Simulated assay, not measured.
Amino acid sequence: MLKIFKITGNSMSPRFNDGDYLLLFTLYQKSRPGQFLVYDHPTIGPIFKQVCEVTEGGSFYLKSLNSAGVSSEDIGLCQTENIIGRMLWHFYP
């Protein structure tokens, strides 16, 4: 139900930084624009991003907060079954 995740990289800075921690809710089913998720991308691996768009079928697109991060186009269309968890709390080391 709950999981701790450590952020690596600066794609979500300045709001979230390398080494910050997240408390995730892992029993998660639907995405909404604006939510922050940890997603298990098939080629990139676990990534922490913000939902920017949800399709009618429930798939969604993710974005970085920093322009130097991976683009939504490179991430591609995401599926609900690959969600690791939704951010409940952000805390600093």
Rank of each mutant, 00 (worst) to 15 (best):
D74C: 09
G76M: 08
R15V: 13
F25Q: 03
I4E: 13
S71D: 00
R32L: 14
T80W: 02
L24F: 03
G58M: 06
K6G: 04
K6R: 14
L62A: 06
T26L: 01
Q29L: 08
I47F: 02
K30I: 09
Q50C: 01
P93Y: 10
M87Y: 03
L22E: 06
E81P: 06
F60H: 10
T80R: 13
R15K: 14
N66K: 13
E56L: 15
L37A: 04
S11W: 12
H90I: 12
Q79D: 04
E53C: 13
L22A: 10
F25C: 02
K63Q: 10
T8G: 10
C52Q: 11
S11F: 07
F25V: 01
K49H: 05
C78D: 01
Y92P: 01
G58C: 08
M87N: 03
E56N: 14
S59C: 15
R86F: 05
T43N: 06
F36R: 03
G34C: 06
L77Y: 03
S31C: 07
C78P: 10
A68W: 00
D20P: 01
G9N: 09
N66Y: 11
V54I: 04
R32D: 06
C52A: 04
F5V: 04
A68T: 09
T55H: 14
F60D: 02
F25G: 00
G45E: 01
P33Q: 05
P93H: 08
S67W: 04
N10T: 13
D74E: 13
D74L: 14
D20Q: 01
C52V: 09
T8W: 06
F60A: 11
K63Y: 00
S59F: 12
N10Y: 11
I44K: 14
G69L: 06
I75T: 07
K63S: 00
N10S: 14
F25P: 00
F36K: 08
V38K: 06
R86T: 13
Y61F: 15
V51I: 08
L23Q: 01
M12L: 08
S13Y: 12
Y28R: 02
L22F: 03
D40H: 12
A68G: 03
Y92I: 12
G45R: 02
D40F: 08
L27A: 01
K3V: 05
T80L: 14
N17I: 08
Y61Q: 05
H41F: 01
I4S: 07
T26F: 01
P46E: 07
G76W: 07
K63V: 00
I75D: 00
L23N: 02
T43K: 11
T80S: 15
E53A: 13
Q29V: 07
L24V: 04
D20E: 11
P42V: 11
K49G: 00
